[in-house]
Amino acid sequence: MSKLDKTNEHEEHTPSSSFSREIEKEPGGADIQHCIQCGMCTASCMVASVTEKYRPRKLIQKILLGMREEVLTSELPWLCMTCRQCEERCQEDVSLAEIFHAVRNIAAREGYIPVGVQKVVDTVMEDGWMLKDGYSDFIEDDRDDLGLHTDLGWNNEFVKKIKKRFIDGGNKK
């Protein structure tokens, strides 16, 4: 059971909105206070249907309650596939994909990034794209046979500049 699920049900919570106000100011986080906790998101969620540890409504509730540390250090905000099935059905137009992006951006700035995500980010910000190492001679031959160009010509200069400016800088917080 994850840390987030261990809330003592007898404890009285006084919703603190300081964390949700912080989320509100992040790109994508503006609508967090519109959530009425109806649970349509969890009911629509494929991730919730295959694992008990992830309940998007509960996670939003933690944010509304101001449980900043618990949320930012948890893997749960990273389990949202951003498939947007829930937001298509949310009567208050809350986008959980966008809110969890905002949460992840804050978590990342404070150094909490799942290993798998960090690896892909490092690769993309070095090579300019995701699959340089996967582009084998065999695939090059397949492309040639299909009449496709084999020099994929990705630009890696731009991402290096972006990393320096927006990602490395952000981590220094």
Partner: peptide, 22 residues
């Protein structure tokens, strides 16, 4: 030509501004 990854999902999750630039 001379394109870069759009930044979907991964870069998007760590820096919205970096994603916007890409």
């Amino acid at each position: 030509k001379d394109a870069n990854c759009c930044g979907a999902q991964y870069v998007e999750s760590v820096s919205h501004t970096a994603f916007a630039a890409m």
